[in-house]
Amino acid sequence: MIRSKLKLFYKKNKQKSRLIIFIHGAACDHTLWVYQSRYFFNKNFSTITLDLPGHGTNTSKPLNSIKAFSNLIKQLIKNVSYNEIYLIGHSMGSLICLDTALAKLKPIKRIFLIGVSYPMNVNKNLLLKSKCDQNLAIKDMISWSLSDKIKLNGSNLIGLNLPNFINVIMSNSKTGLLYKDLYACNNFIMKEDEIKKIKTPITIISGDSDIMTPKKIAKNLHDRLSVSNFEVINDAGHFQPLENPIELNKIILKYVK
């Protein structure tokens, strides 16, 4: 059932004990995690990257709220039956992780929030633009997401032009998807006492050049959580999984060992 709603890319390790689930952000897909899913699989984790409904290769109907997405993740966690699960979310995916945390599911041992802010107030002009001209909104988002170093001096991935690569991933989305996603982010609400009650350890990872979800605002969330760590990646913006995969993997590894 859950597999019909979530398109899963499942790398099962022989030692079926530890699983990492990676959740992408608005108008993205599982490709975002290519340098994490393979890396952690070869570190004896099973890994699941996925395409949320309406994203990437998943042709299911897109969803309207963070809650609807997190309900799918909760079902997935119940279905895969692992004792030790780590959730890693990027941007909109990090809100999905945050909402999943409220369910207090026992197998979840730690949650990683990458490129996060709460509340995730989407700029009104961007929201409007995503409704009227999705491709233009994507270009703006990429421009604000990547550090100048990445945009001008190149990526850390051999031969790849990161702004154009991310642009293609996001532009493959059906018209209207980005608006739906941004709307869901903008309207996601958690009560302050709910945030305080989250007891699952959380690691927030912020890019020092991120102006989509600036580190100052990410730090503010860290200050409101009961059990959390705050990490900053230098020379990275909002797309840290692709901008600086080596540093990001090191940080994740530190907390899952």
């Binding site: 107030n121 989407v122 700029n123 421009s143 604000w144 990547l146 100048d148 945009k151 001096n153 600036p214």
Partner: peptide
């Protein structure tokens, strides 16, 4: 998410020298 216009896209001649 916050909008800030200080970051822009670079043009052809700049890219041909620095990219």
């Amino acid at each position: 998410m916050k909008k800030n216009n200080k970051y822009k896209k670079f043009n052809f001649s700049t890219l041909s020298i620095h990219a």
